[in-house]
Design a binder for these strands. Structure first.
Lengths: 212, 212
DNA sequence: GGCAATTTTGCATGGTGTGCAAGTTTAGTT
DNA sequence: AACTAAACTTGCACACCATGCAAAATTGCC
């Protein structure tokens, strides 16, 4: 009856695959149009034509153009933090974050994430969308942290730490993105390096004590 | 000819005051409706009627309902970080942030900020709007940090530190908000205390070394 | 091949956000 | 007080967004 777009459960094999493909096609079309006309420089009708579906079908999959454009970001963060749950709770948090967010990522994929990140500068809606996605990631991280921190850690600690970790990840992503004016792809190792650096800063309280 | 809504410069006295009052009336109306029908539970037309202006005039002041609702948040953060610029660059950053964000704030105003923060849970657009406002605050903080950090500090340090500081402030705000289920107003001293705590956590690298 | 569930699509509808031009108010001038 | 120029408000038009609904097309399965 309804369009079971977000079942989350990959139980069904055939139809599920089609939907994933359709969704990917829409995102691809959205990115193509965003590159050509700028984010916010095209309408849903154009996007629907480009993706080869009806306008109505697009809205069955996404509530807005921005949601289509940012799908890769959402997927990346969700995958990353899903991997974090699979890790030992004994492992230091920062190591775990470094391993999951900074883990295997193709140069192609990183370049895409940077490109989308950069587009946020040209379109407020797109920027807000991405902020919300990172916020969801923080939420997921907070849930994970509650199992990893000692009992003595209160809700404030969980929230502040999760927020700071996300801030470091965003900082690393931003660095990677700004080092990518256009076309040029930053090596994943560079992103990983920035992430490591920012986490080290966080670990040491940003060297507040060392007066230079 | 054009409607000079956001001149930023308070040079003019008479007209400027009227505009501020009009804007405040719209925000008040928006908050009233949000309280009664929930955020996202009313239209711009209703808001315009409630504020006693035409629909078109509303859009002269705000680009969306969410922007009207979140005006107090925007003002609070802008005021706070403006005060930060007036402080000595020698002062430790965290002290400065604590003094400006945690500085004089009436219980009434804090309660309002908490209320708006809470509304974000019921409305995605409103949540995104607030995230963007905090993002602007981070931007402003980054600009301030460049003058305060030693030369050796790179862009990554600036971004990661600013993001972490903002994350701590958000954590404190969230704690204050969740301790305010409804109606009950949290004392500003509690918010200040949470802010102090979270900044201490940040300063010490979240006690990563103490295994408890 | 046929059937049931799922998905796509068109249509209608109510809401958003902005350009434009005409009207109204306001501050300052004589 | 009357005048004027600038600033503000308003109505209207218009393109676009987002969703409910029901018919039509597709798909998976026996």
């Amino acid at each position: 009856m309804g369009v079971n777009v977000d079942s989350g459960v990959p139980l069904e094999g055939r139809r599920e695959k089609n939907k994933v493909a359709t969704r990917a096609a829409m995102t691809a079309a959205a990115l193509r149009l965003a590159r050509e006309h700028g984010p916010g420089g095209f309408t849903v009708d154009q996007l629907a034509v480009e993706a080869g579906v009806s306008r109505r079908t697009f809205f069955n999959y996404f509530p807005s153009i921005e949601a289509a454009v940012t799908l890769p970001v959402e997927e990346f963060l969700e995958e990353s933090f899903a991997r974090l749950d699979e890790r030992s709770a004994d492992e230091p948090i920062m190591d775990a974050v470094l391993a999951t967010l900074g883990g295997d990522i193709s140069q192609e994929r990183l370049a895409l994430l940077c490109e989308i990140y950069q587009m946020g500068a040209d379109d407020a809606q797109l920027e807000r969308m991405q902020l919300q996605i990172w916020r969801q990631a923080q939420q997921s991280l907070e849930d994970g942290l509650r199992h990893r921190l000692p009992e003595s850690a209160g809700e404030l600690t969980v929230t502040a730490l999760a927020g700071s970790l996300i801030a470091c990840a965003q900082a690393a992503m931003r660095m990677a993105a700004t080092q990518t004016p256009d076309g040029e792809a930053p090596p994943p190792s560079a992103f990983r390096q920035q992430l490591l650096e920012s986490l080290d800063l966080l670990r040491t309280g940003f060297n507040i004590n060392s007066k230079d």
